[in-house]
Amino acid sequence: MINLLSVGYSKLFKNLAFRVCLIIMAALPMFLTAVSVSKTAPGSGPLNGIYNTGMIFIGLLIGAFVSVYISQDHSEKTLNNKIMAGYSRAVIYLADFIVTVSGALMMQLMCILASSLIAVPARGMYTEPFADAVKQQFILFCVVAVYTALVLLICTVINSKAHAVAVSLMAVMVMLIAGISVYDMTVRKGEAPAASTEVTTEDKVVKTLYNVLPQSQMYAVMEEHIPADAAKMICYDAAAIAVMTAAGIVIFKKKDIK
């Protein structure tokens, strides 16, 4: 496992798609932060939580980088070599997951760093408690891990690499739109005057989706900093990661690798 991880990390840092995604994850939050800085008055105080703004695009970037990274393993036949070297398929899959999640975590850290590089000198150091910031980042890391597990599963199920990339990006985009829509529905429901106390089945479905979908969790963190259902969200994420990884390992074990 250690050998696979060390090879995986060295391959990750050489991967052009990963480097490009890191650059985008630096440039985009910097731009969004600069816009926020120019929109607020100079004495308006620190921009707490601004470092999360760039995260809205991370799902798409994970979709691109993970699928290209995994397809490289198949096209260069490194996968066959790993199997011939005696590594079990479960270990290979888990090593790929750990490496890609680490890559996604680096993108998340890059987002925080890039935003803070503009926000802190312009508006001063954040005033929110450090523990709250860590909790927010932990929830966002769970979201990032769900996206990574999903893309890894898709790349395992689909043999054609071009199709795997296309389906991964589409799946991430659909989850992104669904998450935004569910978040929007929940917010509008809360803002509605004299909201009825009766809880319908539709409300329950929307509420569950709000807690389950990674993108709505991300929006909840951005707006509420620490959502009321944070613990539930983390549990759902952990369950989703476990189910998708287990399914991926089972499919990968049965896959005919040429």
């Binding site: 691109a64 490289q72 096209s75 296309a166």
Partner: peptide, 23 residues
């Protein structure tokens, strides 16, 4: 030539040009 990279670049080009024009 890399088919996976082409698919990723082209779909992302659409996504980013969409976000870019909105920004």
């Amino acid at each position: 030539t890399n088919e996976a990279a082409v698919t990723a670049i082209e779909f992302m080009s659409f996504q980013f040009s969409f976000f870019a024009v909105l920004m």
